[in-house]
């Protein structure tokens, strides 16, 4: 049994229908536990006070904003190379979710930045990169919406996603070059665990797991909708022929 079998819409629909409730339930559980733990059961930061607790939304959203694009890139490559329709549709389904994560990261960042840096917005390299990422998402979604034929749209957005990924990376380095920034270093990394102490670290991990599961659940749900929409279009086309 090969993994590619799930690229068949029927197999995908059968599997996703069974898996979706569990993923959605696990996402809700992780988010509730992580956020309640993080907001109410952790101490305030000695320097940043209670404002630090926004990391339980900010960090996972920012991570998933980038990961969603990477997932779209992989899905686009699979579509362009192997022509699996479901792959193209998952990329389409993931884009608005990724955009919303990007906007959450930007909004929570602004809410956090106001008390910490005294400003809602600064042209800091990380903030700027996320703003540019949001523009990439917007362009990608707009191109999907503008092209009528679904396979043409899938091809064009796939190419845009690949080229966009290269330019998004370039922009990241360009922006770093342009301004060294105020943003604190990575909150999370394997070699620098002391960045964030364990008290904050564990609820954060739970929240990240919750965001990942929420992303998977939303993409599954949206992909199911896209497949149904494609099927509807196919049936309508068939009616017209008759």
């Amino acid at each position: 049994m090969s993994l590619w079998e799930y690229a068949n819409p029927q197999k995908f629909m059968h599997l996703s229908r069974r898996v979706l409730p569990f993923v959605a339930g696990a996402a809700a559980l992780c988010l509730i536990v992580g956020l309640v733990w993080g907001f109410f059961a952790t101490p305030n930061d000695y320097k940043q006070g209670p404002t630090v607790k926004i990391i339980y939304l900010h960090v996972p959203a920012a991570m998933m904003a980038i990961n969603a694009w990477v997932m779209m890139l992989v899905a686009s490559l699979i579509w362009l190379i192997r022509r699996h329709h479901v792959s193209a549709l998952t990329a389409k389904a993931a884009a608005p979710v990724g955009l919303v994560f990007t906007l959450i990261a930007l909004a929570t960042g602004a809410l956090w930045g106001q008390p910490m840096w005294g400003t809602w917005w600064a042209w800091d390299p990380r903030l700027t990169s996320f703003l540019i990422l949001a523009l990439f998402y917007l362009g990608y979604i707009a191109l999907w919406a503008a092209v009528d034929d679904p396979d043409t749209a899938a091809d064009l957005t796939g190419i845009l996603c690949i080229v966009g990924s290269v330019f998004a990376l370039l922009s990241r380095y360009a922006v770093n070059f342009w301004n060294q920034g105020l943003h604190q270093g990575a909150s999370l990394s394997l070699d620098k665990e002391e960045n964030v102490s364990d008290v904050f670290w564990f609820p954060l991990l739970v929240c990240i797991a919750g965001f990942v599961l929420m992303f998977v659940a939303l993409v599954l749900l949206r992909t199911r909708t896209e497949i149904r929409a494609r099927r509807l279009a196919a049936l309508i086309a068939r009616e017209r022929m008759g």
């Binding site: 540019i132 362009g139 707009a142 191109l143 370039l170 922009s171 380095y173 922006v175």
Partner: peptide, 16 residues
């Protein structure tokens, strides 16, 4: 749409 697609791609060129 062209402007929306192209402007983010122009960022690195503009910055440098």
């Amino acid at each position: 749409l062209l402007s929306l697609l192209v402007l983010p791609l122009y960022v690195p060129t503009l910055i440098f």
